[in-house]
Protein backbone atom coordinates (compact mmCIF):
# COMPACT_ATOMS: atom_id res chain seq x y z
CA UNK A 1 0.00 0.00 0.00
CA UNK A 2 2.87 2.36 -0.55
CA UNK A 3 2.48 2.76 -4.28
CA UNK A 4 -0.10 5.52 -4.12
CA UNK A 5 1.94 7.92 -2.04
CA UNK A 6 3.38 10.88 -3.84
CA UNK A 7 7.12 10.72 -4.44
CA UNK A 8 9.02 12.96 -2.09
CA UNK A 9 10.38 15.05 -4.91
CA UNK A 10 6.84 16.09 -5.88
CA UNK A 11 5.97 17.06 -2.34
CA UNK A 12 9.23 18.93 -2.09
CA UNK A 13 8.51 20.83 -5.28
CA UNK A 14 5.02 21.68 -4.11
CA UNK A 15 6.18 23.00 -0.75
CA UNK A 16 9.04 24.82 -2.42
CA UNK A 17 6.63 26.51 -4.81
CA UNK A 18 4.37 27.64 -1.99
CA UNK A 19 7.39 28.95 -0.07
CA UNK A 20 8.57 30.88 -3.13
CA UNK A 21 5.09 32.32 -3.49
CA UNK A 22 5.18 33.57 0.08
CA UNK A 23 8.66 34.95 -0.47
CA UNK A 24 7.78 36.83 -3.62
CA UNK A 25 4.67 38.40 -2.07
CA UNK A 26 6.67 39.49 0.97
CA UNK A 27 9.51 40.90 -1.09
CA UNK A 28 7.04 42.84 -3.21
CA UNK A 29 6.32 45.00 -0.16
CA UNK A 30 9.99 45.71 0.53
CA UNK A 31 11.05 48.86 -1.33
CA UNK A 32 13.87 47.87 -3.66
CA UNK A 33 13.24 50.37 -6.45
CA UNK A 34 13.79 48.75 -9.81
CA UNK A 35 14.91 45.67 -7.91
CA UNK A 36 11.29 44.73 -7.18
CA UNK A 37 10.54 43.92 -10.79
CA UNK A 38 13.75 41.94 -11.14
CA UNK A 39 13.08 39.96 -7.98
CA UNK A 40 9.46 39.14 -8.84
CA UNK A 41 10.35 38.02 -12.36
CA UNK A 42 13.36 36.04 -11.16
CA UNK A 43 11.27 34.20 -8.60
CA UNK A 44 8.59 33.67 -11.25
CA UNK A 45 11.19 32.13 -13.52
CA UNK A 46 12.44 29.84 -10.75
CA UNK A 47 8.89 28.72 -10.05
CA UNK A 48 8.22 28.08 -13.73
CA UNK A 49 11.46 26.14 -13.98
CA UNK A 50 10.46 24.01 -10.98
CA UNK A 51 7.09 23.23 -12.53
CA UNK A 52 8.66 22.43 -15.89
CA UNK A 53 11.45 20.29 -14.50
CA UNK A 54 9.55 18.35 -11.86
CA UNK A 55 5.80 18.45 -12.52
CA UNK A 56 6.20 18.36 -16.28
CA UNK A 57 9.07 15.87 -15.96
CA UNK A 58 11.30 17.80 -18.28
CA UNK A 59 14.34 16.59 -16.37
CA UNK A 60 13.59 13.02 -17.53
CA UNK A 61 12.92 13.93 -21.13
CA UNK A 62 15.22 13.35 -24.08
CA UNK A 63 16.84 15.77 -26.45
CA UNK A 64 13.95 16.23 -28.82
CA UNK A 65 11.49 17.36 -26.16
CA UNK A 66 14.07 19.76 -24.79
CA UNK A 67 14.62 21.14 -28.28
CA UNK A 68 10.94 21.89 -28.71
CA UNK A 69 10.54 23.32 -25.23
CA UNK A 70 13.65 25.37 -25.89
CA UNK A 71 12.35 26.47 -29.28
CA UNK A 72 9.25 27.94 -27.67
CA UNK A 73 11.37 29.91 -25.24
CA UNK A 74 13.88 30.92 -27.90
CA UNK A 75 11.23 32.37 -30.17
CA UNK A 76 9.58 34.08 -27.23
CA UNK A 77 12.98 35.63 -26.62
CA UNK A 78 13.16 36.84 -30.23
CA UNK A 79 9.72 38.36 -29.97
CA UNK A 80 10.48 40.17 -26.73
CA UNK A 81 14.01 41.19 -27.69
CA UNK A 82 13.39 42.60 -31.16
CA UNK A 83 9.95 43.86 -30.23
CA UNK A 84 11.14 45.89 -27.28
CA UNK A 85 14.30 47.02 -29.06
CA UNK A 86 12.32 49.57 -31.03
CA UNK A 87 10.58 50.98 -27.97
CA UNK A 88 13.71 51.11 -25.84
CA UNK A 89 15.72 52.99 -28.45
CA UNK A 90 13.11 55.54 -29.48
CA UNK A 91 14.37 59.09 -29.41
Amino acid sequence: MTDWRPPLVLVGAWLGLLALLALTVTLAYVPLGAGNAVVSLAIGTIKAALVAAIFMELRHRGGLTLVFAGAGLFWLGILLWLGSMDFLTRT
Binding site: T24, V25, A28, Y29, V30, P31, L32, N36, A37, S40, L41, I43, G44, K47, A48, V51, A52, F55, M56
Partner: peptide, 26 residues
Protein backbone atom coordinates in the same frame (compact mmCIF):
# COMPACT_ATOMS: atom_id res chain seq x y z
CA UNK B 1 -3.50 16.69 -20.29
CA UNK B 2 -1.18 17.02 -17.31
CA UNK B 3 1.39 18.86 -19.39
CA UNK B 4 -1.30 21.24 -20.52
CA UNK B 5 -2.47 21.81 -16.97
CA UNK B 6 1.04 22.51 -15.73
CA UNK B 7 1.58 24.88 -18.61
CA UNK B 8 -1.54 26.84 -17.64
CA UNK B 9 -0.04 26.95 -14.16
CA UNK B 10 3.26 28.35 -15.49
CA UNK B 11 1.42 31.04 -17.41
CA UNK B 12 -0.33 32.04 -14.23
CA UNK B 13 2.95 32.20 -12.32
CA UNK B 14 4.14 34.86 -14.75
CA UNK B 15 0.83 36.68 -14.92
CA UNK B 16 0.85 36.81 -11.13
CA UNK B 17 4.29 38.39 -11.10
CA UNK B 18 3.33 40.88 -13.80
CA UNK B 19 -0.12 41.81 -12.56
CA UNK B 20 -0.23 41.71 -8.78
CA UNK B 21 3.28 42.40 -7.59
CA UNK B 22 4.45 45.70 -9.16
CA UNK B 23 4.00 48.89 -7.17
CA UNK B 24 3.36 47.22 -3.84
CA UNK B 25 6.38 48.72 -2.11
CA UNK B 26 5.68 52.39 -2.79
Amino acid sequence: AALYWHFVDVVWIFLFALIYLPGRSS
